[in-house]
Amino acid sequence: MNPATGPVLAIDTPLTTLAEAEHSLFGLGQAVVLPADALVCTHEVRDAAPHYAFSITFSGPVSETLRARLIEYLGDWPMMFDAGPVGSDVPVGSQLAVGVGSDLGVGVSQALDEVRRRAGGRAVRFPGREALTGSLPIAAVLADSAIDRMTLLGGGTIAPDWQLTTRDFVRPRWQQGDLVLAVMPAGSGTVAPFEVPNPTPCCGGH
């Protein structure tokens, strides 16, 4: 399954924690019906005020209706449509800035750049994601989702007949052109995603 390569909507946000970013994108998914093959990513913006940016990559033209719904949901966060090589209602290569300009805007260009080069971005929503629940054979995960490959942290190699324990939370990242899921050992013949769904709440009010 291939992820979308068409127009990209890049959005900067004032959100500083992963929980806030996940929550916002969950809400977007509830409020706006995105095409099934849309790819939604978070991007870490490490500037003078560290925060998150988002990107939504579409496979084809984005209708006026959908665009209006997205702008309505995302409010006044700085964002930009970048038309992709796949046909769209915006001429190839042209960009359309919407939202209110602010000093958070650096995230727009970073998100756009990372997702266009497939060099960065953490996919929250991607083709085949809905089926990644429970425990699945790794070969099936690679065949039926947009995930291109897995890397095993801590050394060693993964056999195709191993199982992925998904914890119902799978967040691959773009890395050198591939959508890569980092996994860790999770018992004999089993791996689990590096990222856990519910990290320890931070102590000390920090």
Partner: peptide
């Protein structure tokens, strides 16, 4: 969970 409660991932602050 994680040994040492090390179960986090990269963030904008990392």
């Amino acid at each position: 969970g994680g040994r040492g409660e090390y179960d986090f991932s990269p963030s904008p602050d990392s």
